[in-house]
């Protein structure tokens, strides 16, 4: 028996796929933000060798296709390091690393956006380097970085669609399955596209709201 028609269960399937996509997106965003920020802090402290290595790795990750990185982790790592790696683990490693590389660049430019005079003034008041980072740089850098970060995250959501190629059951993979079963590519891919579009708009909206909050202290309040 062949189910060539759409069934109500397909909606559940699509919702599951969307859940997997969004879940992996959120997880890799959190990990990527942590690692990327950590890298930026290492650079801020000018740790020798490590800082240069991080810059090089970030450049490599930024300037190569995510698909190739995905293949390297999913096919290459198990063969070379003799470890077991499922598609989901490989996807989490790759996407986190990729997000971290872009977050690193944004974080570095956010830190550099704060004037030297502020840092010097804080140091003159006797704050330690960590206190300067925590109380002077971090709050301002956050407000500076949120705009580019929103753009990055909208992009990273779309990048998650590539993990369907290594067999993760995300929204794109579900679209593939439905397409093969019903042979109605226009409807299937349009629905999948709309779901991604709405998710992207949600991220952009959340980013804009957060930015307004973080920039509230610089807003014009009237006399």
């Amino acid at each position: 028996m062949r189910y060539t028609e759409f069934t109500p269960f397909d909606i559940v399937l699509l919702a599951q796929g969307l859940g997997v996509s969004v879940g992996l997106f959120l997880a890799t965003t959190v990990i990527g933000l942590l690692i990327g920020t950590l890298w930026a802090v290492v650079r801020f402290y000018r740790v020798p060798v490590l800082a240069q290595v991080i810059t090089f790795v970030a450049e490599l990750l930024k300037n190569s296709p995510v698909l190739v990185q995905l293949f390297l982790v999913f096919f290459g790592f198990p063969a070379f390091f003799h470890i077991n790696l499922g598609p989901v683990e490989a996807a989490v490693i790759t996407l986190s690393g990729n997000t971290a590389a872009f977050v690193y660049v944004i974080a570095v430019s956010a830190i550099e956006s704060i004037g030297r005079d502020q840092i010097e003034a804080a140091r003159a008041f006797g704050l330690t380097k960590w206190q300067v980072l925590r109380h002077i740089i971090a709050p301002q850098a956050m407000a500076f970085a949120i705009g580019p970060l929103t753009g990055l995250l909208v992009n990273q959501l779309q990048v998650t669609s590539l993990i369907s190629v290594i067999g993760v059951m995300d929204l794109t993979k579900i679209g593939n399955i439905l397409n093969l079963r019903t042979l109605k590519p226009f409807i299937v891919w349009a629905v999948v596209g709309v779901l991604y579009y709405l998710a992207a708009k949600l991220i952009a909206f959340a980013g804009a709201t957060l930015e307004r909050r973080l920039r509230a202290h610089t807003a014009w309040k009237g006399l």
């Binding site: 450049e59 490599l60 300037n63 190569s64 296709p65 698909l67 190739v68 990185q69 293949f71 390297l72 096919f75 290459g76 790592f77 063969a79 070379f80």
Partner: peptide, 30 residues
């Protein structure tokens, strides 16, 4: 990328193939 996929499955050396490919893309874009 497509040819690299074929080479990787031909030689059973996916790590080497994709590392080279990664560096090739990075150099090209640079």
């Amino acid at each position: 990328t497509g040819t690299a996929k074929i080479v990787a499955s031909d030689t059973f050396k996916p790590f080497e193939v994709y590392v080279v490919l990664l560096i090739a893309y990075a150099t090209l874009t640079y």
